[in-house]
């Protein structure tokens, strides 16, 4: 009797979860199907009409997108911003993380507490002052400016994460390497980085995702030649209905890369997002 009840309960649970899963998939499916329809079709009926008249589906929007120099340029800008911003954060934070964990220098403890305090500083507070600063330095509107801003605001979390991970390295390992006469630089390259790979991977994925998906920072710091896909697309959102044949495939294009990263590196992805969620 109890077993029957449990079986019934389990059936209900399964049904509930299946429905939830379907609900969660619908928005993405809707975007994808919309991206394969013309603006006129979208103006007259929802994406679900493709199930009754699949003739609406075509890749015309995507080929138009590839011929749209604004979009392709913006896509490359996204790459040119995300990759350096990720590499720089990882390199700079790994160096600092190692120093904070294992090297001795004045004010080490208070400086690290400052880094911890900066973890939750909102990006918004930096927008205006940094814009003025970049204006004076000639960085305003450029890709390096956007990259630098992302690096700076990615650093507190990155340094915090890597320092904590590096601090777990057994002391004896480092001692042995020093006994062998390795310089700090050699130890960093040969020992710390390889040992720290899991944390570095999670960090890199989190930072890449953060920068790739950013709109706010680039909205202010990138001019029309430097703007990434997110900014290019949001500039078309005012005429949402008539631009849907650009917006839908453009949005899909912008999310294909992070979603691919997600499926390729599930574990590191989840860990990175979890750890970085305070940002």
């Amino acid at each position: 009797m109890n077993a029957i009840r449990r079986g019934l309960g389990n059936g209900l649970v399964q049904a509930f979860l299946v429905v939830t899963g379907l609900v969660w998939m619908t928005p993405l499916a809707g975007l994808f199907l919309s991206s394969l329809r013309s603006a006129e079709d979208t103006a007259t009926g929802g994406w679900w009409t493709v199930f009754t008249s699949p003739g609406q589906l075509s890749f015309d929007n995507y080929s138009a997108l590839l011929d749209n120099s604004g979009i392709t340029q913006a896509f490359w800008n996204t790459v040119l911003i995300s990759v350096p911003a990720t590499v720089l954060v990882v390199v700079i934070a790994a160096l600092a993380g190692y120093a904070f964990a294992w090297l001795d220098f004045p004010l080490r403890e208070p400086l690290f507490l400052l880094v911890v305090a900066l973890l939750v500083v909102p990006v918004q507070i930096g927008l205006l002052p940094v814009a003025k600063l970049f204006g004076q330095l000639g960085l305003f509107g450029t890709i390096p400016g956007v990259v630098l801003f992302h690096v700076a605001y990615g650093l507190p979390f990155a340094v915090f994460l890597l320092r904590n991970y590096f601090a777990e390295i057994p002391k004896e390992m480092l001692e042995a390497a020093r006994m062998d006469g390795g310089s700090e630089w050699r130890i960093f390259i040969r020992l710390v980085l390889p040992v720290g790979r899991p944390a570095i991977a999670s960090l890199a994925i989190f930072q890449f995702l953060w920068v790739w998906n950013d709109m706010l920072v680039a909205l202010l710091f990138a001019d029309s030649t430097a703007q990434p896909l997110t900014v290019e697309l949001q500039s078309q959102i005012r005429q949402f209905g008539s631009n849907i044949d650009v917006l839908a495939p453009g949005a899909f294009l912008s999310l294909v890369v992070p979603v691919a990263v997600f499926f390729a590196f599930q574990r590191h992805f989840v860990q990175g997002v979890m750890a970085g969620s305070v940002k």
Binding site: T26, L28, L31, D214, M215, L233
Partner: peptide
Amino acid sequence: LLLFMPMAVSFLAAGIIFRLA
């Protein structure tokens, strides 16, 4: 995995998705 996936999607793309929905 399915429920976590939207975390990979930018707010911009999510915004467009929900403007449609």
